[in-house]
Simulated scan of single mutants.
Amino acid sequence: MPHIPLPQHLPGITGLLEYRLDTALPIRELTQILLRGDSTLTQAERELIATVVSHGNECKFCTTAHTAAADLLLGETTTAQQVKTNPDQAPVSDKMKVLLEIARRVQKSGRNVTTELIEQAKSLGATDREIHDTVLIAALFCLYNKYVDGLASVTPSDPGYYATLADRIVNQGYLRPQKGFDHLNKQ
């Protein structure tokens, strides 16, 4: 049960963002830019960053949501699972493996990102912007994970919920729909 009153038809982060539309707006805009905006990292790669950070923070809602989004973007379910459980064997580029390691280190503490790790990423072709965005996505998802779990937001157990959510975030993005979310209220 959430620590504050939230719309029952909006579990996870959505209900929290609806609670304070003024604070939600800049967070949503930043997320849209980072995960759906122009980048040399694919949308799937950026969702994988969100997935590994959320997994490391043990945020079930965010891990499940962004795993589903990555799976939808990739058209398969193996990669996201492997980056969470066996990253060295994951079917991603060596550059992406190092970027995911940077994200995992940010998840624990930004101070864990070393010059050597950054140089390794650069030697594999990572650009300064890719490194910047990896760190910022990782930091943003630490915020999201703590927001969702810190207010005990509802975490659905139905996999169908996450498939629908993944479709919405992949195909409509992270911005609030102009008419809000009342259409999701089935009461």
Rank of each mutant, 00 (worst) to 15 (best):
A126F: 01
V92I: 12
T42K: 11
Q81E: 12
V98Q: 01
E116G: 10
E116R: 10
S54W: 10
K122N: 01
D128Y: 03
G37C: 09
L74P: 02
T63H: 09
T127I: 06
L100T: 00
A69F: 03
K97E: 06
S123M: 06
A50E: 02
I33G: 10
L35F: 06
I102S: 00
P26V: 13
I102K: 00
S123E: 02
Q32V: 07
R111N: 14
T51I: 09
G75H: 07
K60V: 15
S93Q: 05
D71S: 10
L48H: 12
A126W: 01
H55D: 12
I118M: 09
P26G: 13
E45H: 09
G125A: 03
G56E: 08
V98T: 07
N86M: 11
F61L: 01
C62E: 07
T51Y: 07
T63F: 09
R104K: 12
Q120K: 15
V98I: 08
R28K: 12
G125F: 00
R105N: 15
V92C: 00
L100A: 00
S109K: 06
Q43T: 15
A103H: 00
D128E: 14
Q82H: 11
D38P: 08
G110I: 11
T40F: 06
S54H: 12
L124I: 08
P87Q: 04
I118V: 15
T31G: 08
V98P: 05
E45K: 07
E101R: 13
H55F: 15
E76V: 12
G56C: 09
G56I: 05
T51W: 09
T114I: 08
E76D: 05
V53W: 08
L124E: 00
M96G: 00
N112D: 14
A44Q: 03
T114Y: 11
K60T: 15
A68S: 14
D88G: 10
E29L: 13
